[in-house]
Design a binder for these strands. Structure first.
Lengths: 336, 336
DNA sequence: GAGGGGCGCGAAATCGATTTAGACTTTACA
DNA sequence: TGTAAAGTCTAAATCGATTTCGCGCCCCTC
């Protein structure tokens, strides 16, 4: 059994409260006593009981992670896993633990918000979810400090990837290589999709490139099949595009496969690009042209912001942080 | 503020203990009262405070996950993420939460075991770690119920993939296609590596195939560069192998790249196979020949075993569960 | 009608910490 | 020298639950 504060009290010949104060740097404990208590605590291998402390202080040093999308990719989502990994490293370094939030308790059901309250979460990270889910909205607007990734709720901290400039750079790059018939397979409705699609239109307009209605179509993020069929459709057009931008790197694999199946070569016959810059995109051949989003850093920044919000709740909420992407010139886009 | 049991007590005109008993199905509360309390609890949106309950009962309904390997792939490890995903779904369905175990607490350090105690974990999943790490061993041999993936500790529940039969099937398959110069790039030392390597030797012997010393070499799991260089080395041999088995699917991408760089084609000039059967392996072209391990199911079974162990501690420890793999005949191994 | 046995509920201790209020000792100062 | 002010520590309440023990009450039985 772990050593309790009571054990320390007995061993030191001091009251329980004196021990607690000594360990928590209260000023009404002499330097001498404090040092003595610390020494004994170390010797006996004492560490506080998290639940007892949390019960009294309302601080659990535990952060909830809402990480379930409707499509159930969950922990298999490459981009978000990288975000979560960065978040985890950073927040653990600051003394917090990470617990997944779900909607069950014992045999019953609980909303995300109540699950956070149930465990006394100090804050929550919302990533990889449907941000339009009412339960997600409820949590974001509650008293629980929340940080979101790639979606802005009023009153919440937020870190987002700069999808506008990423898409702009990408379009400019392929345009500069001579492509004019550029297609976009975008993901399902979300803030991210919104930024990318509108940036796509904007940039195409700025470059005086024609926007063909059939060239802009909808797929699903992280879903190879949806990109496969979207691309297959496009290839059947009388005048197919010469370059196709996919929803993301992983899904791009499906789109690329459709191209190969159609007997075309990448990039000799048709160019493609992804988005995200996940690890595999740079390991496969041909190396994927894509926009790298520093997911690890995004997670890290999210952790910093959330902890600041928890520990300094009265500070003004800073503007959402925008993390710039970086164009990776791979081997899948070729001079047109 | 959440509703407490005291609020319920006032509202119902019953003692706090009566409320608690009613909600916990004690037999000394009348059916009528029980129903009444439940109804009011529902109306007021009551749910218990996890820390208060855990403090008293020593049951946190929280499971620790040790998930940090020395190589820091952590949450980016495709195979283990799939295991964790299956584990998470299953265990959440049984009313438990998942918290990552690390080695910090506030500003100090804590062993994995003490971190579990600190949070009052009901049990722990050990996956994706160096199983020879002394702290991991300490946790496995402690009073905390533990389930491990792909490594057997005495006294612990365990679910493992059948690496012996998987490797056997794979070797037989490529041999049957006429390959005799079969190479193996295996991963770093571990129980899994051990099974695969010894099964490789066994099967080669059974098939009366020659084992060339230079054909068996060491790489690192999940590391494309190590497989790349291992394969590059082999290709320089006077008589290179005609088929190379890699540490795993992801790392195989590096090995395959080395082959392409050397101006060879897959599988026309040389055959390759991976291991794991992760999602991307079946999306890339050529589709990778590999052994599929049902990671989701492995995680799920691990969850079931762990919970059983927690809830029925006196039951005899069942033998480790061995989950069979399944050969996926892709497009990267060809008739020799 | 007195004793015995359920039944239904309440009082109080408890888990392991934190924190307020107060007590006692020593020092400081007029 | 007396009193105020520090300086150090203790006692006890508290957080929100669970659980043991015991107390009435009703009914049954002899």
């Amino acid at each position: 059994m772990p050593v309790t504060i009571k054990d320390l009290s007995q061993r030191c010949g001091l009251s329980v409260s004196a021990i607690s104060k000594a360990l928590n740097n209260y000023t009404d404990i002499s330097e001498e006593t404090r040092a003595y208590v610390r020494k004994v605590a170390m010797e006996m291998g004492y560490f506080p009981n998290a639940q007892a402390r949390a019960l009294k202080t309302n601080r659990s040093y535990n952060i909830g992670v809402v990480y379930e999308d409707g499509n159930r990719y969950g922990l298999m989502h490459y981009y978000f896993n990288a975000v979560l990994d960065g978040f985890k490293r950073e927040i653990e370094g600051m003394g917090y633990d990470l617990t997944f939030i779900n909607r069950t308790i014992g045999s019953g059901q609980l909303s995300y918000l109540n699950h956070c309250r149930y465990r006394g979460m100090d804050g929550a990270l919302i990533a990889c979810v449907d941000f339009y889910n009412p339960e997600v909205v409820e949590l974001a607007q509650s008293e629980v400090p929340v940080v979101t990734i790639d979606h802005l709720f009023s009153g919440c901290s937020c870190v987002m990837s700069d999808n506008r400039s990423g898409m702009r750079e990408l379009v400019r790059y392929v345009a500069q290589l001579g492509h004019t018939r550029i297609a976009l397979v975008h993901g399902e409705y979300s803030a991210v999709t919104d930024s990318r699609v509108s940036s796509f239109y904007e940039t195409m307009n700025q470059l005086n490139l024609p926007i063909v209605k059939e060239y802009v179509t909808s797929g699903l993020y992280h879903n190879t099949e949806s990109n496969r069929s979207a691309v297959a459709q496009m290839l059947k057009l009388p005048a197919p595009p010469t370059c196709i931008l996919m929803t993301d790197d992983f899904a791009a694999l499906g789109g690329m496969d459709a191209i190969v199946q159609a007997g075309l070569r990448i990039p000799e016959d048709i160019s493609v690009a992804g988005y995200d810059g996940i690890q595999i995109s740079q390991v496969i051949r041909p190396r994927l042209t894509t926009v790298f989003q520093d997911a690890g850093r995004i997670g890290q920044e999210a952790a910093k912001r959330l902890v600041h919000r928890i520990e300094h709740p009265r500070d003004a909420l800073p503007a959402p942080m925008i993390v710039a992407g970086q164009l990776l010139k791979g081997e899948t886009v070729r001079q047109a």
